[in-house]
């Protein structure tokens, strides 16, 4: 673990408030359990060694089968540890409930996330732009994600920001994250969703507030519209999709996806190609 903490990029190298707290709980739990696990492992090896048949110095107690005091320890010691751990679980589960907003000064950003076969769509409703396989976030700003799926179940996860959560068709899950450092991270789906699953990773770019505004401007100048035709094209299966942006989004698209009220792909799309309509690369 110590070795890994040095390694960058994993869940033990957090870059946001939630991930910091979650990895802290992870390490605390391991530490708590080692209080009981480490002695147990040592005792196992010690007993196994000392009481080997060939060791004539070891005392042989062929009828020693019960000890009330030991039973008390047997039950009491793990119970104590778990009592402590239970406290950790109780507080942690509430404090880090993904539905719970992050208390911070300033406005929170709304991002709507849709998993598709096999890519991610990020809608910025307030900016009315959208992006595919690229999540751009302003630094130190709490973000509220609403997450659903336009296909099978997936799971939204940015390891260094924490808080994995399912994306399910017909349902909305919510997640609150905050990125604390500028830089490039990555995210992916962790719930197997079919043949293109392995390619469902996305870039996460944490920018300064000004750069974020600049990115929104850039997106508005893109050539792609997420209108009905655009969405129909997006629905079609595609794998390992390069990131690109949309300058406009169907109003309330997210809610329509959740309630199943967008027109199905075959109704509007005629193009035979399985390539997403606007595969232009960002920046």
């Amino acid at each position: 673990m110590v070795l890994l903490a040095g390694c960058s990029g994993g869940v033990l190298d957090p870059k946001g408030q939630i991930a910091v707290q979650e990895s802290e709980i992870l390490l605390n739990s391991v530490g708590t359990m080692l209080i009981i696990v480490a002695p147990t492992l040592l005792a196992t090896l010690a007993f196994a060694w000392w009481f080997r048949a060939s060791n004539r110095k070891a005392r042989y107690l062929p009828d020693w089968v019960f000890s009330g005091r030991l039973e008390l320890i047997n039950w009491g010691y793990p119970l104590l540890i778990i009592l402590f751990l239970g406290g950790l679980i109780w507080m942690g589960s509430h404090r880090l409930d993904p539905f719970r907003p992050i208390a911070a000064a300033g406005k929170q950003l709304e991002v709507q996330v849709v998993s598709l076969d096999w890519k991610w769509l990020f809608i910025y409703p307030e900016q009315s732009v959208a992006s595919v396989n690229e999540l751009v976030l302003p630094v130190e700003t709490p973000v509220h994600f609403s997450i659903t799926s336009a296909t099978v179940m997936n799971s939204f996860f940015v390891p260094q920001l924490g808080g994995m959560i399912a994306a399910m068709p017909g349902m909305i899950t919510q997640l609150h994250l905050k990125a604390d450092h500028m830089g490039d991270l990555w995210g992916l789906s962790t719930q197997f969703s079919g043949d293109g699953f392995a390619g469902m990773h996305f870039d996460v770019r944490v920018k300064s507030n000004e750069d974020f505004e600049r990115w929104v401007e850039y997106a508005r100048k893109s050539a792609c519209d997420l209108d009905h035709a655009g969405y129909a094209a997006l629905l079609r299966e595609s794998q390992n999709v390069r990131p690109f942006v949309y300058r406009s989004v169907i109003p309330a698209l997210f809610v329509k996806i959740v309630t199943g009220k967008v027109s199905p792909p075959n109704a509007t799309a005629e193009q035979g190609s399985s390539v997403v309509a606007c595969p232009e690369t960002a920046q």
Binding site: S29, M164, T190
Partner: peptide, 24 residues
């Protein structure tokens, strides 16, 4: 020896905030 380690990682996964990092 092996099972004790497996039990420990199991309990770790039973801590929801840790599971949010390790599930799947």
């Amino acid at each position: 020896v092996t099972f004790v380690i497996g039990g420990m990682t199991g309990v770790l996964l039973a801590v929801p905030p840790a599971d949010f990092l390790l599930h799947n």
